[in-house]
Amino acid sequence: MQNTSWVPFFPEQASTVAGMVDALYFYLILVSVAFSIPVVVGIFVFAIKYRAKEKFATPEEIHGSMVLESVWSFIPFVVSMTIFVGGALVYFYQYTMPENAMEIYVVGKQWMWKAQHGTGQREINELHIPVNTPIKLTMATEDVLHDFDIPAFRTKADVVPGRYTYLWFNATKPGKYHLYCAEYCGLNHSGMGGWVYVMERRDFDNWLAGNASGQTPVEIGKDLFEAKLSCASCHAGGPQQRGAKLEGLYGSTVKLVGGGTVTADDDYIRNSIINPAGQVVEGYQPIMPSFKGQVTEEQLTALVAYVKSLTPNAASAPAAPAASGGPAQMPAANAAAAPKGGK
């Protein structure tokens, strides 16, 4: 990674958000300097000017000043509010998922990053992406917490067991950038990382073509659904259908047994496979067995991708939002609700 920045020891700006984060950073440096100058100058001037000239002197007493106290409470408050607002705006931008982004599935496990493109290409500890294209990562982890971190893009998000988290960015400069795991994950934490390659569109297409794609996530999911896991025996249409209808499900609002509704998003589909009794759809019996332990996170993402593909225009359905946190139902709530559904 050659450094083209004019500031020494400064990381490269390679995404749309990087400039905003850096602007905030420089604003804060400015505030810090402006705040430090009166204090530091005050300390030095007073320390020299009022150094003791007589042993055990008794200088005149000054009790304080309400005016000064008000001023130096109010000004820092106002300044800190500007910092808050600036931070909030950037944060809002960082975690509002763009529509029609190119989706890539990422699974973290001790101690590697596995990525799979929508067209089927798989990578480990590398990520090839086209420049000037919004990329949305749907991330899961096989084991502990991880954190997908690309400093040149100035963004990161934890990957949390038991749910999906999301990260998006739009790279602005072709190049090779560090990819780290930023959340401590055990023995080889510092080895869990690699490179992000940002490529011109044409180079990226060549790269895609040059890598045998195998099956796409949707195809893998379809294969699992119809053959390996026999989901279709209940969920396929027809008179024998015992499981909920999946066509057109994604993004819709589902009514649950016992009242309450839930939006059918990635996390909902994932949870319904892992813990089917947690949220039973109204009108169905809680008879689906749990597939926990039988499917890997990668197979799960493929299944989710397949179920999504059953809904036309799924990509533009609910913009999966939240700070790296999807519209997640908390897993604990699922667990608490489980016995009810199961009985």
Binding site: V21, Y25, V31, F84, G87, A88, V90, Y91
Partner: peptide
């Protein structure tokens, strides 16, 4: 204290946290 402001400003901390 001043660098605490950097880390309290949520948009900036996304980049800085865990570093």
């Amino acid at each position: 204290g001043l660098t605490g402001l950097f880390l309290g400003s949520v948009g900036l901390t996304v980049h800085l946290t865990d570093t």
